[in-house]
């Protein structure tokens, strides 16, 4: 097959999986607890540098460093809830501002500490690549697609088939009713932030090996997560998947047929258009419900 069309299909899928992975943690936290964790980008960057430090200074093999990073960053997520979000819980603007401040503080701390050189890399899991539809694609990108798929299915199973997952969903649907059946609100919200932070770490472990861990990737991760979740619908998992596919293929199509410089415009344009035309996102219901009430 080869050619530009095949490249669009293959790299469109890779791009969609990349977006889905980047947004998964942010969307999960909001979907389960209603907390828009704007520290998401900072936690993503923290994950990359934590894994690098564990490998470089403690000489851990990559997989061990990655596993430790997911746990550590998950704990940081829980800590962010206890220290920063809990005191302002329920005041949405305060939640956004305080988590955003934490994210910026993490990112800028690394800049201040001098993590700006070109030395920070994580290894790919498998070297080399293969031909798919006549297009050469490296194994790491195929791993990204696989991880995105497996994680999405696993999360769906977790939130639908496990007691904790059902409790978290119950909390997200009606906090007071959930409280009345013994689900502790702060515990559930803290767990959702820890899970979201852990997912941002998983994303970092498979995405950073493509290049260098750079400071600005923290801000980019937040922008991507916002674009995907706003497009798909903040509380909808299916919407997030569709949002990732739409954005991923739109960016790749734009890059291949119009020019790579317009890819950024697609992200921002998607946010603006969706907010203007359908504020709840493609599959979101929040605004509709609000208007009905």
């Amino acid at each position: 097959m080869g050619g530009l069309l095949a490249s669009t299909l293959v790299y469109g899928l890779v791009s969609s999986a990349t977006l889905l992975l980047t947004a998964l943690g942010f969307s999960l936290t909001f979907g389960l607890s209603g907390v828009a964790n704007f520290a998401h980008g900072g936690l993503y960057l923290l994950s990359g540098f934590t894994a690098w430090l564990l490998m470089t200074h403690l000489h851990l093999p990559f997989l061990a460093a990655a596993a430790a990073t997911v746990v550590l960053v998950g704990l940081v997520g829980a800590l962010v809830y206890r220290v920063v979000v809990m005191p302002v819980r329920g005041i949405h603007l305060a939640e956004v501002i305080s988590t955003f401040a934490v994210g910026v503080a993490i990112i800028e701390l690394f800049r201040w500490l001098g993590f700006t050189t070109y030395d920070y890399v994580l290894p790919v899991l498998v070297e080399d690549g293969i031909d798919v539809l006549g297009v050469t694609v490296d194994w790491q990108r195929l791993i990204i697609v696989a991880v995105a798929l497996v994680l999405t299915l696993a999360l769906w199973a977790f939130t639908h088939w496990t007691k904790i997952g059902l409790a978290l969903r119950g909390m997200s649907q009606d906090e007071y009713t959930a409280l009345s059946v013994g689900i502790e609100s702060d515990w559930a919200a803290m767990l959702s932030l820890a899970l979201g932070a852990g997912l941002s770490a998983v994303a970092a472990m498979v995405l950073f090996p493509l290049g260098i861990i750079s400071i600005n990737s923290g801000y980019d991760a937040l922008l991507v997560a916002l674009a995907v979740t706003v497009l798909g619908g903040l509380e909808s998992t299916a919407g997030m998947i569709i949002g990732s596919l739409v954005l991923g293929f739109a960016v790749t199509l734009t890059g291949n047929y119009v020019g790579p410089r317009w890819g950024e415009v697609v992200y921002l344009g998607a946010i603006v258009v969706v907010l203007a035309v359908r504020p709840s996102g493609l599959l979101g219901k929040s605004k509709e419900l609000e208007e009905r009430v």
Partner: peptide, 29 residues
């Protein structure tokens, strides 16, 4: 962080030389 669009075109067109011009860390990708 993704340069596949240009690299695909360069490969398909039979480019013998690819000239990059970047001063950003992400160009390592």
């Amino acid at each position: 962080r993704d340069f596949s669009a240009s690299l695909t075109k360069a490969k398909a067109g039979g480019a013998q030389v690819v000239v990059p011009m970047f001063d950003m860390p992400e160009s390592g990708v």
